[in-house]
Simulated scan of single mutants.
Amino acid sequence: MHSVVLTKGVPDFREGQVSFDEDGHLERGATPTVMNPNDEFALQAALQTKVKQGGRVSVMSMGPPGYESVLEEAMGVYADDLYLLSDREMAAADTWSTSITLSAGIEKIDEEPDLVFAGFKTADGETGQTGPQTSWCLDRPIVTHVISLDVDEADGKLRAKRLVEGDVDEIETVEAPLPAFVVTDPEFEPSYRRAEHRLRHKRLVAETEERVEEYEDHLTTWSAEDLELDPDFIGLDGSPTIVSGVDPIPKAPSEREATMVTPDDEEGMEEVLETMRPMAGGD
C-alpha cells in the first residue's frame, strides 16, 4: 500500500512570528515558513494506513528550495521518503497550475500510489481547491471531509466516514474504489484499537524520528524539466486566476495596557514577582 501526502509551506501565523511592512502587507521573506497545520491530519491518515496495511508513505510539496524545511517537519510526523517540486518556472502558481504540477509529480513516482492524501485547506489561501483539482488531474475518485477511514485491500476499496456540514452536522459513510484521493477534515482522528497496531505505530514514529535527522538522504528534488512540464501551463503563465487587489491585513488594536520593566529595575521586578506569586500558587 503506497500513500502520497501533499503538503504546503505557509507563513507561521503564530503571534510574534508574522512580519508586516508599513502598509500591512505580509513580508514572506521575513516570516518563518512552516508546514500547513491542516496537512498534519492527512499525514496521520497516511500513517494509520501504513500501520494497518503496511507499505510506504511519501510526502510531496511544491515550492522554493527553502521548502526542504517544510518536508523535514512533515517527516517528523511520518514519512518514508520526500519529494520537492522546485523550479522558477513553477513560481507564483495559483491552485490550478499547482495541481497540474503536483499531478505530474505523483505520476513520475516509480510506484503508483494507492492513496493520495491532502489537507482540508491552507492557512494562507483558504480556498480548499488544490486537493480536488489534483484529484481531477489524476482522474481519481475523491472523498472529502474524511474524519475516519479504513482500507480493504483485498476488495480494492476505501471505506470512510465524512463530515457533512449543514444546518445540522451529519456523518456520512461512503465507499470508493482504489486508487483514490482523500481530503482529511480537521476532525480526523486516527484509530489504533488493536495492541499490535499501537505497538507498530510506536515503532514507526520512533523510526521517523531517527530518519528526520538525515532527511536530505531521503529527499528527491524535481524541476519542471524533470517532470516534462510545458512552461505555458505552470507557474504564473499557467494560472488563470487574476488578483485584482490585495488588502492590507489590519493590525489588531491592543486591548491591554503594558508596563515595561527591565531586569535592572529592582523595584519593578519585585512588583512583577508579587503579581505572579498568587498565580504560581494556583489562586
Rank of each mutant, 00 (worst) to 15 (best):
M1W: 03
H2K: 15
K8N: 12
F13P: 05
E15F: 00
D21Q: 08
D23S: 13
D23Q: 14
G24L: 09
L26P: 10
E27W: 02
T33R: 14
M35C: 14
P37G: 04
A42D: 08
Q44M: 13
A45R: 07
V59F: 07
M60R: 05
S61N: 11
M62S: 07
P65S: 08
G66A: 09
V70P: 02
E72K: 13
M75D: 03
Y83D: 02
D87Q: 15
E89L: 15
A93H: 13
T95L: 11
S99A: 15
T101A: 13
S103G: 12
G105P: 11
E107D: 05
I109P: 01
I109F: 06
F120R: 12
G131Q: 04
S135Q: 11
H145A: 14
D150Q: 11
D150S: 13
D152Q: 02
A154Y: 03
G156W: 04
K157H: 01
L163Q: 13
D167H: 07
E172S: 12
E175G: 01
A180D: 08
A180S: 15
E187I: 00
E187N: 11
S191R: 13
S191F: 09
S191E: 08
R193Q: 08
R194C: 00
H197L: 01
R198A: 04
K202C: 04
V205H: 07
A206T: 14
E207D: 15
E207A: 15
E207T: 12
T208S: 15
E209K: 14
E209W: 02
T221K: 04
W222C: 04
E225A: 12
L229P: 05
F233D: 14
S239Q: 09
T241W: 01
P248T: 03
P250N: 06
E255W: 00
R256V: 02
A258I: 06
G268C: 02
R277Q: 14
R277C: 01
P278V: 10
M279E: 11
G281Y: 13
G282Q: 09
